[in-house]
């Protein structure tokens, strides 16, 4: 287990370093000279040179990168060029919103998707299976930003039951915060629910016909226990799918925040692209990718935990 974890963590760390280089270079490729952005359109060449020197922009790219990483490790991601606030502060301010949104959506997706998948597999070829499959296909096909608009149209504009926008922090008004999060979390969770439902169904169907389920039945256990046996072996699939789909969830969060005007990470990212606030963009992407890599690492470890074969052999299958 320890050997396995070390290898996985090592690989993730390498990926993270390479990804940070990609991000760093990517941001340098963005149109516009950062010094120009900082100094304004009418800046004199002397001022530009001064700024370049001050921010180390005249150094070779790898020096700049190392300096950026060094600073980042101390929690300093630079200053926003738009409103001169430390990027770290901006990110920390926006982080709770996105975390809450994705966590709620994830919870919705796991609860709805996995249970629908189980029902659908257990009732294979019967009415509940058709309903679940139909809804799953629709959930898979409807783009989340359209679903968001329709949800607003129905629940806010027509029926006035839930707000379309207007985020309130949880600490200020928990009930209001949750009311505001219901629609975004549902909208964001639908696609993932559909994917999870389909994958759970197909994994469970495969496991339900396995020999060990027949063994369980031969012991006299009920259908529920049979399904539990099969489900335990389907969990690795479910966890893998969750890991793979997490990127989609993060992408979906960007749009969902845009539609429901939630002051989260995604909105920050899109706004920083349009206002050319590159230090903010760089910080936000870096933090997102870091989070994504870390969660995938956790998924790998959870996978090993769920699959005793990997856990004990300390290797891959």
């Amino acid at each position: 287990m320890i050997r396995f974890s070390l290898r996985t963590v090592g690989l993730a760390a390498i990926t993270l370093v390479l990804a940070s280089i990609v991000i760093f270079i990517g941001v340098r490729l963005l149109p516009g000279d950062p010094a120009q952005v900082l100094a304004g359109e009418q800046a004199s060449p002397e001022l530009l040179a001064a700024i370049r020197e001050q921010f180390g922009l005249d150094q070779p790219l790898w020096v700049q990168y190392l300096r950026y990483v060094g600073e980042a490790l101390q929690g300093n991601l630079g200053m926003s060029t738009r409103n001169n606030i430390p990027v770290t502060d901006l990110l920390l301010q926006r982080l709770p919103v996105t975390l809450e949104l994705t966590a709620l959506a994830l919870a919705v997706a796991i609860i709805v998707g996995v249970s629908a998948g189980i029902v659908s597999a257990v009732k294979q070829g019967r009415f509940p299976d058709y309903v679940a499959n139909g809804l799953g296909l629709i959930g898979l096909s409807v783009p989340s930003f359209w679903l968001g608009l329709i949800a607003i149209l129905l629940f806010s504009v027509t029926w006035h039951v839930l707000p379309a926008s207007g985020f309130v922090p949880f600490t200020t008004d928990p009930a209001g915060n949750l009311r505001g999060m219901v629609l975004p979390a549902l909208v964001l969770g639908v696609g993932l629910s559909a994917v999870l439902m389909r994958q759970t169904r197909s994994a469970l169907l495969g496991q339900l016909s396995a020999d060990y389920v027949r063994t369980a039945r031969s012991k006299g256990v009920g259908r529920g226990t049979e399904v539990r046996h099969a489900m335990r072996n389907s969990l690795t699939t479910v966890v893998t799918v969750l890991g793979l789909q997490l990127g989609g969830l993060i992408g979906g969060a960007i749009i969902t925040e845009q539609i429901f005007v939630l002051p989260g990470f995604g909105k920050l990212m899109v706004d920083s692209v349009s206002s050319r606030d590159y230090p903010v963009l760089q910080g936000a992407v870096l933090l997102t990718v870091t989070a994504y890599i870390v969660v995938n690492l956790l998924v790998d470890i959870a996978y090993a935990y769920l699959n005793p074969r990997i856990r004990l052999n300390g290797g891959t299958e």
Binding site: T15, L16, L18, A19, V22, I23, G26, L30, L246, G247, G248, I250, G251, G252, I254, I255, M269, V270, V273, L281, V285, T288, V289, Y292, I293, N296
Partner: peptide
């Protein structure tokens, strides 16, 4: 490394 970027974030970055 490229798969470490969520699809949409990658696309947003490239589009930018």
């Amino acid at each position: 490394v490229l798969l470490a970027f969520p699809f949409l974030i990658f696309a947003v970055g490239l589009a930018a």
